[in-house]
Design a protein around this nucleic acid. Structure first.
Lengths: 178, 178
DNA sequence: TTTTAACTAACGACCGGTAGGAAGGGAAAG
DNA sequence: CTTTCCCTTCCTACCGGTCGTTAGTTAAAA
C-alpha cells in the first residue's frame, strides 16, 4: 500500500508540482479516503520526502551501474517516457518546494560530482582534457533533460545525436566509435 | 501601480510557482489589500498571463537585438541574477501552471526557432553544418539556464567557457576568435 | 489482546473572489 | 470659481470552497 501511494503521488507531484497537488487528489487516485493517508505518512511533507529519497537512490544506482557514456544519455529518453518516478525527480529538482530547496540542491551537487567521476573513469586516461569532457558531458545531459520536458521524443533524439557527434570529435578522437 | 504589482508578483511567482503563490502574499508585498488587486487584474490567472506576456516580449526583443552569439549566452548570467522577470520566465517555462501549459510550450517552440534563425544568420554561410551549429547552440543555452537555477555564478561561467571552446572548435574554425 | 489500516466527521486556516462603500481627482455644468 | 458627477482605486467585511490535519471509531489481522 505504501508503495501504491508513493507511486500515485509521484505521478501527481511530477505533473502538478508540490503546491499544485492536494492530498485529496492523491487519495482519490489511490482509491482510499484522504485521512487514511496518515496511516502511512505523517504529513504531506513526509510523503514528498520519502518519494524523493527513493528517486535519488534509484538514479544514483543507475549512474553507478553505467559503463557506456552514450548509452547512459540515451537511457534518459526511455526513462522520461516510462518512469513517473524519474519525471518526479526531474521536476522536483527543477522546482523544489521551499522546505526542501537546500537539501535538493545539495543532492544535485553530489549527483553532478558522481557524474564527473564516472566520466573520468570511463574516458581514456591519456585524454588531455578530462575535466572539460566531464563538464561537457553534464552540459549535454542537462540540455537533454530540458528538451525532454518540452519537446518531442524525436527532437530529443536529434539533440542527442548532434551533441554526441560534437562530443566524440572533441574528446574521444581515436577511440572506438560506438 | 499596475507595473508595481506585476513586478512583485513576478518575483513571487518565480520563487514559489503559480500554485505556491497566493494573492495575499502579492498584495502584502505591494503594500495594499488583497481585493485592491482586482482593480487592476480581473483574476489571478489574468495577472499571471499579463506578466508572462511581458516576459516573452522582453526576451524576444533581446534575442532579436543580439549580434554576437557568445555575448548573448553571457548576457544570461547577468540577467538571471538581476532580472526577476527573466527568472519568472525561466521557472514558468520549466514548470507552467496547467491552464497555460499548451500556450507556453508553443511560445517556447517559437523561441527556439527564432534562436536557430539567429544562429544561421550570424554564422558564416560557408559553414557546412549550420543546422548542427544551431542545435548545439540551443544545447549550450539550455544547459546554461539549468546551471543558473542550481549552481553558483562561477560554475555557470565555467560551464559557458568550456562549452564555448568546444563550440568554436567545432563550428567556427577559421573565424575570428572573440 | 494488541496492532494496523481503513473509515466518518470535523477542525481552523487559508484560498480566490465578491459586495458595497469611502476617498480622491478631473471634467463638465451651473 | 464652485458645485456636481463620475470614475478610479483603495478599503472592510465576507462568501463558499478547499487545504492539511486531527479525533474518534470500527473491523479485521496478527
Amino acid at each position: 500500500m505504501k508503495e501504491t501511494i508513493k507511486k500515485a503521488a509521484a505521478a501527481l507531484f511530477a505533473e502538478h508540482g508540490y503546491a499544485g497537488t492536494s492530498l485529496a487528489q492523491i487519495s482519490e487516485k489511490v482509491g482510499i479516503k484522504k485521512p487514511s493517508l496518515y496511516a502511512h505518512f505523517k504529513s504531506k511533507d513526509h510523503l514528498f520526502e520519502c518519494i524523493i529519497q527513493d528517486a535519488f537512490d534509484a538514479e544514483t544506482k543507475r549512474v553507478e551501474a553505467a559503463d557506456d557514456l552514450y548509452k547512459l544519455l540515451e537511457s534518459y529518453l526511455f526513462l522520461y517516457e516510462e518512469d513517473a518516478l524519474f519525471r518526479f525527480l526531474l521536476t522536483s529538482s527543477f522546482f523544489p518546494p521551499d522546505f526542501l530547496k537546500k537539501r535538493i540542491l545539495k543532492k544535485y551537487d553530489e549527483y553532478l560530482q558522481s557524474l564527473e567521476e564516472k566520466v573520468k573513469m570511463v574516458l581514456p586516461s591519456d585524454s588531455v582534457h578530462t575535466e572539460d569532457a566531464a563538464i561537457m558531458y553534464t552540459i549535454i545531459l542537462d540540455s537533454l533533460l530540458v528538451e525532454l520536458c518540452y519537446g518531442t521524443r524525436e527532437r530529443s533524439q536529434k539533440r542527442l545525436d548532434t551533441a554526441w557527434r560534437v562530443y566524440e570529435q572533441a574528446f574521444m578522437k581515436g577511440q572506438k566509435k560506438r
